[in-house]
Amino acid sequence: MTGPVPKRSEARRRRNGPIIETLHVPGNAGTGVTDTRISEVPTNQLHPIAADFVDSFSDTPANYLFDASDWAELRILGLAMSQLLTSNGTKPIAVDLLAAVIDATDDFLTTEGTRRRLAVEVETTAATQPAAYSHWHPAAREWFDALPLSGQAMWYQTTDWAFAVFVAEVIHRFVTSGERMSGKVYASIQKATTLLLTTEGARRKAQLNLNKTSADDIGLTRLMEAYADYL
């Protein structure tokens, strides 16, 4: 007896090899989209930081992968983030909601940390850092100002920067709340900063190696520049 007819090679299910294959997204994919689903997200009803966060997805190449359900859930995330930022009054931000919002950003490939973990490779684009808010506590402002001076920022998309503004606002509110920062609060902030690859440990876990320029390299460069000027 002969066995069953074998499947065509393209119909066979692979049972070995990497579970996640790197997905390459061109730098111009998804940017400047005019899909009506974006306009359905009511950013005029959101806190300005939440509105900017939602709007940032219209200019990120990663939205090339989004379907209608992604945009619908992004609307929910924007509403949750807005509630988090507007309902606190004189009280600290709700810790449980903060943790949930930060976790939810993972689902939208918001940060380079998430994109690398899920093997989504997006070509770098010239995303610029938004302006810092003048009311921020010096600790929040110092953290935010350090980002463009760090090597991982060259991989940031508009969504990374919008998320960084949200994180800086959260840092500001907890530092100025007058209450002691709990372990849950710090864990949430630390997770958010890890997604932005702000520490060497986070970068190594994401397999992002930044080349450090040694003092000898800097000295040699300056020497060659001086020699060129002399000539």
Rank of each mutant, 00 (worst) to 15 (best):
T2N: 12
T2H: 11
T2M: 13
G3N: 08
P4E: 08
P6M: 00
E10M: 06
R12T: 00
R13H: 02
N16Y: 05
P18M: 03
P26W: 04
P26V: 04
G27K: 15
N28E: 08
N28W: 08
A29H: 10
V33F: 09
R37P: 02
Q45I: 06
L46C: 04
L46W: 03
L46S: 03
F53A: 02
S58A: 14
P61R: 07
N63F: 08
Y64N: 10
Y64Q: 12
L65V: 02
S69D: 15
S69L: 15
D70F: 11
E73S: 12
I76K: 13
L79Q: 15
S82K: 01
Q83C: 09
L85C: 02
S87T: 10
G89A: 05
G89H: 04
I93F: 09
A94G: 12
A100R: 15
I102S: 02
D103P: 03
A104K: 14
D106Q: 09
L109V: 06
E112S: 10
R116N: 02
V120T: 07
V120Y: 06
E123V: 10
T125C: 02
A127N: 09
P130V: 02
A131Q: 09
A131G: 05
W136M: 07
W136R: 07
P138L: 10
A139Q: 12
W143H: 07
G151A: 12
G151N: 08
Q152E: 14
M154A: 12
M154F: 10
M154H: 14
M154C: 11
W155M: 13
W155G: 11
Y156T: 05
T158R: 15
A162N: 07
F163S: 11
A164Y: 02
A168E: 03
A168S: 03
A168Y: 03
A168C: 02
I171S: 08
F174M: 04
V175Q: 14
S177R: 03
M181P: 07
S182H: 06
G183D: 11
V185M: 03
Y186I: 05
Y186E: 14
A187R: 13
S188A: 15
I189W: 04
A192P: 06
T193Y: 01
L197M: 02
R204C: 07
K205G: 09
A206R: 00
L208S: 01
K212P: 00
T213C: 00
D216L: 11
G219R: 13
T221R: 15
R222D: 06
L223V: 11
E225G: 11
E225C: 10
E225D: 14
Y227V: 09
D229A: 14
Y230L: 13
